[in-house]
Amino acid sequence: MKNTAYRLFKKPFFGRFMRPWRWPEQIDPQPWQRLTIDSSSGARLSALLAESHAPEAKGAILLAHPMGTVAKGFWLKQGHAELLRAAGYHVMLFDLNGFGESSSTTMDYPLDVLAAGQALQQHYPQLPLAVLGASMGAAMSLCALAQPGHPFKAAVLEAAFPTLLHFWRRYPIPSLGIRLSMLLYPAGERRLRPLHAAERLVGKPPLLMIYGEDDDYTPVEDGLQLHLALSGTTHTEFWRVPGAAHTLAYTAQPQAYAQRVTAFLDTYLASHN
């Protein structure tokens, strides 16, 4: 009954994105191992794991996807997964609950990030972990960093919104749903509010925040608001990407993105390796 109520509440937000998942065309599935992860959200999460191209990996990276029917396939299609494997990192992709091949339960998406991160740590207990997220995946990853027991030593967050209302303000029905949740279930809404998490980061992992100058959904000024809150808590770098639309910084500036992201990960995971 509870999960049915959540599925109905989710529909105005994510209904058009929750479709049967297909393997992205022209991507070789051979290197990828399929996994199933139990999340405290009640969901069974679908995940993919691939090894680094380097003989000795520097660490392992969890990738948390933005909204979209392609879900975890976003990282395969856009090239992030291969970039990180070539840079010497093991990579795990996973579907947030209700997306891709994961079952749909509550809206406690930070618990999905936490479960996937802990599963990745179990695979590589001797290696440092980071999380890389985009849009919804970035925001929920930030919220996961406020959860006790998260395994992440650093995070790269692209287009993370400060609050759910910032992202959904253009859409009347989702905005109304969020405002009602703030009245009826304020604790639940706070768990999904990156600005709330910014003051409560566990372990204070360093962050690289990325925002596209052509992003209409999470504009730079939203990112600056979140950056201001985070910079008082932990080391936080901010990168404005010229010509980048929403979640497409790597597409807009591939060489700069590769250099900036891998240098950040190399710097802040090396001290834990």
Rank of each mutant, 00 (worst) to 15 (best):
P125F: 13
G137Q: 12
A197E: 13
L120M: 13
G137K: 10
A116F: 08
P125C: 02
Q121M: 04
I178T: 02
L127S: 08
A130S: 08
A134G: 05
T163N: 10
L120E: 02
L183P: 12
H123P: 03
K204M: 11
A130P: 08
Q118K: 11
H150Q: 15
L176R: 14
F161K: 00
A119Q: 04
R200D: 10
P205E: 04
R169H: 13
P172V: 07
C143P: 05
V131H: 04
G149Q: 10
R179A: 12
Q121F: 06
Y124A: 07
A146L: 09
F152V: 06
L195V: 11
A154M: 04
L183R: 14
P186A: 12
V156F: 07
R179F: 07
Y185N: 14
M182V: 11
A160S: 06
V113P: 00
P172K: 02
A159E: 05
H166W: 02
L195R: 13
G149F: 03
L176H: 13
L192A: 11
L127C: 06
R170D: 10
Q126L: 08
Q121W: 07
R170L: 09
S175A: 14
L145I: 07
P151N: 06
L132M: 14
P172H: 09
A134I: 01
R190K: 15
A116K: 05
L192C: 08
Y124I: 06
P148I: 14
E189M: 14
P205N: 09
L120Y: 02
D112P: 00
G137W: 01
L164Q: 00
R170G: 01
S135R: 12
A187G: 14
M136A: 04
